[in-house]
């Protein structure tokens, strides 16, 4: 059952990519900024919990809550200080390219701070659900992987319910689809920019915490996570969270299959080559043409 196990592994990593891709595209819809710092929040989540629990000796729940609160406060302050000046000031900065570099700088800053706070070694948050892998026939389910999947389903489901059944959620959708139209009914798009930025930072931190036992994180791991989420979001045209989700899952499965059947060493190389070829072959179908802008 090699295929089955590869599929499980692929779906697990794919669900992580998918969540980050959804975070990137939901925020891009309301802010027009591509966030390259999501992965860094994940890294801070994992290493923060590890530091508070293992080094500082706090109880695990306290460590988790403290880390999430710190991430949320930091994201809020960043939005209030930097993004407010950049987007709402007298000279709003336009253009995807320049605003993209703000999150780029943020990513560098977080990585640097993490290096000072947590050091350069590989660490991981403690496993929240330890024990041997569960088996079903010849299929193996790692507990950490199941936890990741559960988080993805719970958070994704909660988000879906919010969009589907509350006026606030519909207003969020509206401001993503048509910000002028949203302002007409009094929706404060800046408020959603802030809410989603803080929200995605916390969600990213949660995923960092549950995922880190599988791979282990260093202070530089954020960039890799962001990059994959970013790529998956790109295949959803950055504006379609649903497609970003599918693309994330697909990339995860494809990665696992290539690693399992083609080559462990060059699996990633082949994966990226396929992804690049797909963009060049069908840019319009993948939603790139509409997102073009200076």
């Amino acid at each position: 059952m090699k295929f089955g196990n590869l599929l499980i592994a692929g779906i697990t990593t794919g669900s992580i990519y998918a969540m980050f891709a959804v975070c990137v595209s939901v925020w891009y819809r309301v802010s027009n900024i591509l966030n390259l710092a999501v992965g860094d929040f994940a890294m801070v989540g994992a290493l923060g919990v590890d530091n508070l629990y293992r080094v500082k000796g706090l109880p695990l729940p306290v460590a988790v809550v403290t880390t999430l609160v710190v991430v949320a406060v930091f994201a809020y302050v960043y939005d209030q200080v930097v993004l407010r000046i950049a987007q709402d000031g007298r000279r709003p900065i336009e253009g995807i390219v320049v605003t993209f570099f703000f999150t780029f700088a943020l990513s560098f800053f977080i990585d640097g701070a993490a290096k000072v706070l947590f050091g350069t070694d590989v660490h991981a948050a403690p496993t929240l659900w330890s024990g041997p892998a569960l088996t079903l026939g010849s299929l193996n389910f790692e507990r950490a992987g199941l936890l990741v999947l559960a988080c993805a389903i719970i958070i994704g489901g909660a988000f879906w319910l919010y969009i589907r059944f509350t006026l606030g959620g519909k207003a969020l959708e509206a401001s993503g689809e048509n910000s002028t139209g949203a302002r007409i009914v009094g929706i404060d798009t800046r408020q959603y920019r802030r809410l989603i930025f803080v929200g995605t930072a916390v969600i990213a931190a949660v995923f960092g915490i549950v995922e880190s036992p599988i791979t282990g994180f260093t202070y530089l791991s954020g960039a890799t996570i962001s990059l994959t989420g970013f790529l998956a979001a790109a295949y959803g045209g950055f504006r379609k969270p649903g497609r970003a989700l599918v693309a994330g899952l697909f990339i995860g499965v494809l990665e696992a299959m290539l690693g399992g059947y083609v080559s462990t060493q060059y699996g990633d190389t082949v994966l990226y080559a396929i992804l690049a070829a797909a963009i060049l072959a069908w840019p319009r179908a993948l939603g790139f043409e509409s997102a073009v802008s200076g």
Binding site: T166, L167, E177, N178, G181, A182
Partner: peptide, 24 residues
Amino acid sequence: RQLYPDLTTADNILLGCYTWTRSI
């Protein structure tokens, strides 16, 4: 018009109420 093309007709109209309430 400035509608929200991917939302349903009902939701588009409903969002007009956002000016005075947050409760669906």
